[in-house]
């Protein structure tokens, strides 16, 4: 669906249909004093999708979430949710948010926090279901201050979904979780998507975006530098990575057709190849003693590093 189409759709009708824009930043710039946290960012979150906002720390991810939630005002541009002002109280009835917070009231029990937040919404989930989805049934009687870091994250996650909202914002939901806890939370996030929820998630874990997201928007230093499905993002860097030990000089390898980049890695070299098969044929012809061969798909991580480095270099060049 094209952007032009979604823009013309009447506000009231947007959220119901799959694939419509439910939350958007249009040409948003946000400055804090001298710091430009976001620079002319366009972002559309579509109904029923999980959009991952991926970027290193300080890239502007949290700022984007705060703008969408109406907790911060754009310096220029507009932030819209369900086509309206994010500060509209009626809008907030359909939104859940998990934010990074330094201190949550510590003397209330988990059950009580859930009870209070559930009361904010007209049609909240039954308490049992909220506890199950946050995987916190076993700690519901504990006071928030007595929880571990991972448990606290899970409670905040449960607070975001207890009202059964249509759109859920998750700001770095798995930060501080161990591998096992992260997997459990991923499962719960997938279940939310399966139930038709729209989710915007920020993360600096590439694997997380890769595992969960329908679409990824990569931001760096306040600029959107790439946007697409995880597969598309990966293909933005040369398709595969070849690692081998060879007698050929790096320069010679670099000159082969289909090679994007060559890097020395201890005794081996790593070749980023857009056409791995062609490069391999050449390598075998030129070096009969080639050994230690490994061919891997470039992960999202490689793509991400390549993209942010490229962007940083460009920024350097602009200066």
């Amino acid at each position: 669906m094209s952007v032009a189409q979604t823009v013309s759709i009447p506000i009231e009708e947007q959220p119901g249909a799959k694939g419509m824009v439910v939350a958007s930043l249009s040409g948003v710039t946000k400055r804090y004093d001298d710091v430009c946290a976001l620079n002319n960012v366009n972002l559309n979150v579509r109904s029923g999708e999980l959009l991952a906002l991926l970027g290193p720390n300080g890239a502007g991810k949290t700022t984007a979430i705060k703008l969408l939630l109406g907790l911060a005002k754009p310096t220029s541009g507009t932030s819209r949710i369900f086509g309206g002002d994010p500060r509209d109280p009626v809008t907030r009835l359909r939104i859940g948010a998990m934010l990074q917070v330094a201190k949550v009231p510590e003397t209330l029990r988990v059950r009580e926090h859930i009870d209070l937040f559930s009361s904010y919404y007209p049609n909240p989930l039954p308490r049992k279901e909220t506890l199950a989805q946050g995987d916190i049934a076993d700690i519901q009687e504990r006071k928030f201050g007595d929880l571990s870091g991972g448990q606290k994250q899970r409670v905040l996650f449960a607070l975001a979904l207890c009202g059964d909202p249509d759109v859920i914002f998750l700001d770095e939901p798995t930060v501080g979780l161990d591998v096992e806890a992260r997997r459990i939370l991923w499962q719960e996030i997938r279940k939310l998507v399966a139930r038709g929820k729209t989710i915007l998630l920020t993360t600096h874990y590439l694997q997380e975006a890769d595992e969960l997201a329908d679409r990824v928007v990569v931001i760096n230093k306040g600029n959107v530098i790439a946007e697409g499905t995880p597969a598309e993002i990966k293909s933005r860097t040369a398709g595969r990575k070849i690692r081998c030990m060879t007698r050929l000089a790096n320069e010679a390898v670099r000159a082969l057709p289909g090679v994007v980049d060559v890097r020395q890695d201890r005794e081996a070299i790593e070749i980023q190849a857009s056409d791995a098969e062609a490069v391999l044929r050449e390598l075998f012809t030129l070096d009969a003693h080639l050994s230690g061969l490994e061919v891997t798909r470039a992960g999202l991580e490689d793509a991400f590093i390549a993209l942010t480095q490229e962007d940083n270099n460009l920024a350097g060049a602009r200066r």
Binding site: L71, R92, L99, K103, Y120, L159, F169
Partner: peptide, 16 residues
């Protein structure tokens, strides 16, 4: 405390 340590933001983002 709630202003300084972010809890009020969670409350504000909610429909309270």
């Amino acid at each position: 405390s709630e202003r300084g340590l972010g809890w009020i933001q969670v409350k504000k983002a909610s429909p309270m």
